[in-house]
Design a protein around this nucleic acid. Sequence first.
DNA 1: GCCAACGTTGGC
DNA 2: GCCAACGTTGGC
Length: 155
Amino acid sequence: MASKNYWLMKSEPDEFSIEDLKKKTEELWIGVRNYQARNFMTKSMMIGDEVLFYHSNAKPSGIAGLAVVSGLAQVDPLQFDKKSEYFDKRATHEKPIWYCVKIKYKKTFPKIFSLEEIKKDKALSKMLVVKRGMRLSIQPVDKKDYEHILSVVGG
DNA sequence: GCCAACGTTGGC
DNA sequence: GCCAACGTTGGC
């Protein structure tokens, strides 16, 4: 069995926050329209992978809690929905373009681990999210960074 | 609201 | 296949 992977997934809390995930327990991560992020979901994400749930465009922006991948990549239905902002006219049911994994709520941090704090923490200087201009909405995370964050938040 | 950084599109 | 123009992301 392959070892677990760790991810950071961004969401704007106005759209879908960690509290929304908590209420619904599980949610399809629909609406990803970036090929790199899609490829992480279709090629690398496994059930049981750990997810840092990141609030972007928030006050403050930062890691709000934890989730777990609970469903492998499946066809994102919104690409066929003409009324959706995520509609993609190039997609067909025979040849879908976009996929989504399912994630399950795990934990809300007592306090947001803000981007500012991540930047200040030298142990986390390799994290992609602190890199200037890093807009990727799904990012791989090193196990040691994940564990470091947990130790700081839990401690 | 601004704007830097990046991804995508489309003319050639 | 290049690259300028355009659109989007996302911190501030």
